Deep mutational scan, measured.
Amino acid sequence: AVSDRLIGRKGVVMEAISPQNSGLVKVDGETWRATSGTVLDVGEEVSVKAIEGVKLVVEKLE
Rank of each mutant, 00 (worst) to 15 (best):
1 A>K: 04
1 A>R: 03
2 V>R: 03
2 V>M: 10
2 V>A: 11
2 V>H: 07
4 D>R: 04
5 R>N: 13
5 R>T: 15
5 R>V: 14
6 L>Y: 07
6 L>P: 04
6 L>R: 04
7 I>T: 04
7 I>G: 02
7 I>A: 03
8 G>K: 04
9 R>K: 11
9 R>T: 05
9 R>A: 07
10 K>M: 13
10 K>I: 09
10 K>V: 09
10 K>A: 07
11 G>T: 02
12 V>N: 06
12 V>Q: 08
12 V>M: 10
12 V>S: 09
13 V>Q: 00
13 V>I: 06
13 V>P: 00
15 E>Q: 14
16 A>G: 10
16 A>C: 07
16 A>Y: 13
17 I>S: 02
17 I>N: 02
17 I>A: 02
17 I>H: 02
18 S>P: 04
18 S>C: 07
18 S>W: 09
18 S>F: 11
18 S>I: 12
19 P>V: 06
19 P>F: 11
19 P>W: 08
19 P>H: 05
19 P>R: 05
19 P>E: 06
20 Q>W: 15
20 Q>C: 10
21 N>I: 13
21 N>C: 15
21 N>W: 13
21 N>M: 11
22 S>N: 12
22 S>F: 15
23 G>P: 01
23 G>F: 03
24 L>C: 07
24 L>A: 09
24 L>D: 03
24 L>T: 10
24 L>I: 13
24 L>M: 11
25 V>P: 00
25 V>K: 00
25 V>W: 01
25 V>E: 00
26 K>S: 08
26 K>N: 12
27 V>Q: 01
27 V>M: 04
27 V>Y: 02
28 D>F: 07
28 D>V: 09
28 D>H: 07
29 G>V: 06
29 G>W: 09
30 E>N: 06
30 E>G: 08
30 E>P: 03
30 E>H: 08
30 E>A: 07
31 T>L: 14
31 T>G: 04
31 T>N: 07
32 W>Y: 10
32 W>H: 06
32 W>K: 02
34 A>N: 01
34 A>S: 04
35 T>A: 10
35 T>C: 06
35 T>E: 08
36 S>I: 01
36 S>P: 02
37 G>F: 15
37 G>E: 09
37 G>H: 15
38 T>N: 08
38 T>M: 14
38 T>I: 10
38 T>F: 14
38 T>Q: 12
39 V>M: 14
39 V>F: 14
39 V>W: 11
40 L>D: 01
40 L>M: 07
40 L>F: 10
41 D>K: 15
41 D>W: 14
42 V>I: 11
42 V>K: 08
42 V>A: 07
42 V>M: 07
43 G>E: 07
43 G>Y: 07
43 G>S: 07
44 E>M: 10
45 E>Y: 14
45 E>R: 10
46 V>C: 06
46 V>K: 00
46 V>T: 02
46 V>P: 01
47 S>Y: 14
47 S>N: 13
47 S>A: 10
48 V>H: 00
49 K>S: 10
49 K>M: 12
49 K>V: 13
50 A>T: 05
50 A>R: 09
51 I>D: 02
51 I>C: 05
51 I>V: 09
52 E>W: 13
52 E>T: 10
53 G>W: 04
55 K>A: 14
55 K>L: 15
55 K>I: 14
56 L>S: 01
56 L>G: 01
56 L>Q: 00
57 V>E: 04
57 V>H: 08
57 V>G: 02
57 V>I: 10
57 V>A: 05
58 V>S: 01
59 E>G: 08
59 E>D: 11
60 K>L: 07
60 K>M: 04
60 K>S: 07
61 L>Q: 09
61 L>N: 08
62 E>P: 07
62 E>W: 15
62 E>I: 14
62 E>H: 15
